[in-house]
Computed example of a mutant assay.
Amino acid sequence: MKTLTALMAAAALALTAGIVQARDLGPDEALTLRDAGTVQSFEKLNAAALAKHPGSTIHETELEQEYGKYIYQVELRDAQGVEWDLELDATSGAVLKDHQDQ
């Protein structure tokens, strides 16, 4: 019985650990990171996202900390009305993910 209880506790801990790995950063913290040079300017990150889909408009942005890295998430809508989700490394500006929203 102790083994089953320990196994269930370990499984619960493993499930919650994945949830805690991503943390949304508030506006004040995001601006502090930008001002310190830890992350690139939001204008530069937005330009990198728009360069992937010229003619698009930005609908939402978010800065998160995931596994110790800063990730800038951008939701775009292109001229044909297709929605795109991009993730950029907020430190380097490199595009990490670029996929059509479904």
Rank of each mutant, 00 (worst) to 15 (best):
W84F: 12
R23W: 08
E66A: 03
E75F: 11
T3V: 13
D24H: 09
Q65R: 11
S41M: 11
H99R: 15
L15I: 11
T61D: 01
V39Q: 11
E66G: 03
A94E: 11
A90H: 03
N46Y: 00
V95K: 02
G93V: 14
L31A: 14
P27C: 05
L45V: 10
L7A: 15
Q73H: 13
Q80T: 03
D35V: 12
V20N: 14
E43S: 14
D28N: 14
R77W: 00
I58P: 02
M1E: 10
L13G: 13
V20C: 08
E43G: 07
L33F: 10
L45T: 13
K69V: 05
A14G: 06
K44P: 02
L96S: 06
G55E: 13
D35Q: 14
A9G: 01
L88E: 01
K69I: 04
A10P: 01
T32S: 13
G37R: 10
A90D: 02
A17I: 04
D101G: 07
G93P: 02
A48D: 08
T5N: 08
G93R: 02
E75W: 11
L4R: 08
A48V: 07
Q65P: 00
L4Y: 05
G37I: 14
E43I: 14
N46K: 07
A9H: 03
L31V: 04
L88P: 02
A49V: 01
D101L: 05
G37W: 10
Q80F: 01
A14M: 09
Y70A: 11
K97F: 02
A90L: 06
Y67A: 15
V20H: 04
T57I: 11
I71F: 01
S92C: 14
I71T: 09
Q100V: 15
I71C: 00
G68K: 08
G81E: 04
G55I: 12
E60R: 15
A51C: 00
L33Q: 08
L76H: 05
L15R: 02
T3H: 07
G18H: 07
E66F: 10
V95F: 03
L15V: 14
T91F: 01
L7C: 09
T16L: 11
L50A: 01
